[in-house]
């Protein structure tokens, strides 16, 4: 009831929701923080977090409050951007050693990463709308992707699937579309900014739900 009332009063004149929490969820290294940085760079001229080729670089929830984006026809959308640690079912410090980390640093990173996953899952209760960010070069059928999407559906949280890294040759948009035919899917490259206009338009559509 409280959530319903909160939602009712969170729509502006055009029926577009304002001041909601937009969560970025997905497996590690899918580009969630790169996307968060792209959004912040485009609209606030600043970054949100650091990115790295080593998985689990983001190990704590990062928030940017009051991000305001504008549509082509002048509408505004305001939200708090929530970048979450990548969700994984396994975390092995030995995997970090392969990236040249010392054993001590790898163990520390693994410890922090497990806490990050727990935090990300807890935050599912806090977010109003979610972008599930997938790496379009990877197998979309991973159980983590399916579990996150299923969970959001069960909670009735509006969701868009973002197929990231479409600038790479190995990216297969059709494979992502075939895996999740029931969802809105937008292909982007957060790194190069390719298709970001479509992404922002999708956020406006999503905010109306």
């Amino acid at each position: 009831m409280l959530k319903w009332l909160k939602n009712l009063f969170s729509f502006n004149f055009w029926g577009v929701r304002k001041n909601f929490k937009l969560g970025l969820y997905g497996p590690p290294n899918s580009g969630k923080t790169t996307l968060a940085n792209r959004i912040c760079k485009d609209w606030l001229d600043q970054d949100l977090g650091t990115v790295s080729p080593i998985p689990h670089e983001t190990r704590e929830i990062q928030q940017k409050e009051s991000v305001v984006i504008k549509s082509k026809d002048g509408k505004e959308l305001q939200f708090n951007l929530v970048d979450t640690p990548g969700i994984a079912t396994r975390i092995d410090y030995e995997d970090f050693l392969k990236h040249g980390m010392t054993e001590k640093s790898a163990k520390k990173r693994a410890r922090e990463a497990t806490k990050g996953v727990i935090e990300a899952i807890k935050w599912l209760d806090e977010v109003d709308t979610v972008c599930v960010v997938l790496d379009a070069t990877q197998d979309p059928f991973s159980q983590v992707n399916v579990t996150i999407l299923g969970n959001l559906q069960a909670r009735d949280i509006p969701v868009v699937v973002v197929a990231n890294k479409i600038d790479l040759r190995r990216a297969k948009m059709k494979r992502v579309e075939a895996a999740f035919p029931q969802y809105d899917i937008v292909g982007i490259s957060a790194r190069t900014g390719k298709n970001m206009d479509d992404f922002y338009e999708t956020l406006f559509k999503l905010a109306k739900r």
């Binding site: 994984a88 975390i91 996953v117 599912l124 159980q143 996150i148």
Partner: peptide, 26 residues
């Protein structure tokens, strides 16, 4: 669905030197 997520959360709480997590498929 909620139990699947809780399974992942519980797995993370249990990770230690011997137990490195799970692989899951449905």
């Amino acid at each position: 669905k909620e139990e699947e997520t809780e399974l992942i959360k519980a797995t993370m709480e249990e990770i230690n030197k011997e137990f490195r997590g799970i692989e899951l498929a449905v």
